[in-house]
């Protein structure tokens, strides 16, 4: 069966900079694919391609085996791609329910249906085993990890097939990072495909099924998280594998 999302030979150029060159990426349902790479490797550009913020110059995006166009963020949402950006963009003054439903409020005859929204919020948070003191306290008084889980839950309201998480554990403490990684595993358990962008190899190794490495805007290998060591991934990120010997063996194999 075709993967839910497949990027084929994606290229993107900004003026004189070739940000992405022939990048390929596949994500299946119920799979966590980590996207790693050094600064400037093209991770952010690739996220923007998938999220519809910056469409590619060349290449095809296949959605469930069919070609799709993602020209705007709403195209991505309509397909079933939810993006959680690094800056969470939550309204500190609104409570958890208000943030979860911001822009998609449920109403009956023009009046906000707080009961229905609170019920669904609690159900959603419960299925994800998210612990929050109360869904009626302002987001300002939540911890960083709790805020992250609220932002991720918010992306799940539209029941997306692919969830894109941009550095979800950056700036979080040990315990909070664990909470977020637990949540990523639950997303996989519920059949969502997850693309996880991270700098933290420990996190990546902990939850990812496959690890896609970008280097200088190109694919630099896709690794099985279970069988690959951290050193191998880091050398793929830094280009330490890109030496004379590896080039020679690659040329010989072609």
């Amino acid at each position: 069966m075709a993967p839910v999302l497949a990027l084929e030979r994606i290229s993107k150029r900004f003026g004189a900079v070739q940000a992405l060159t022939d990048v390929e990426l596949e994500v299946d349902a119920g799979e966590v694919v980590a996207l790693v790479g050094d600064n400037g490797a093209g991770k952010s550009t690739l996220i923007k391609v998938i999220a519809g913020v910056g469409p590619p110059d060349e290449g095809r995006i296949m959605w469930e085996g069919r070609q799709a166009t993602i020209a705007t963020p709403s195209d991505a949402q309509a397909l079933g791609i939810a993006t959680v950006y690094q800056d969470l963009a939550l309204c500190d003054n609104l409570d958890v329910v208000g943030n979860l439903y911001l822009g998609n409020e449920m109403t009956t005859m023009g009046v906000l249906d707080e009961v229905a929204m609170e019920k669904r919020s609690r159900d959603l948070l419960e299925t994800l085993s998210i612990k929050i003191p109360s869904v009626r306290i302002p987001v300002a008084s939540l911890s960083g990890g709790q805020r992250q889980t609220v932002a991720i839950s918010r992306s799940l309201l539209g029941d997306p097939k692919i969830v894109l998480l941009d550095e979800p554990t950056a700036a979080l403490g040990v315990e909070q990072t664990a909470q977020v990684l637990d949540l990523v595993e639950r997303l996989r358990g519920q059949g969502h495909g997850v693309i996880l962008i991270s700098h933290n190899m420990v996190d990546v190794k902990a939850v990812a099924d496959r690890i896609a490495v970008l280097r200088l805007g190109r694919n630099n290998g896709v690794f099985d998280a279970k069988t690959t060591t951290q050193e191998e991934i880091i050398s793929a990120i830094t280009g330490a594998t890109d030496n004379a010997a590896s080039r020679r063996s690659r040329r010989l194999s072609e």
Partner: peptide
Amino acid sequence: RRTRYGRSIFAVGGNIEAARRAGI
């Protein structure tokens, strides 16, 4: 407090970027 319009006012007052991304 009870309409989408009012909620939008609070959202813009709380975080403009969040409000914009929410389609307000």
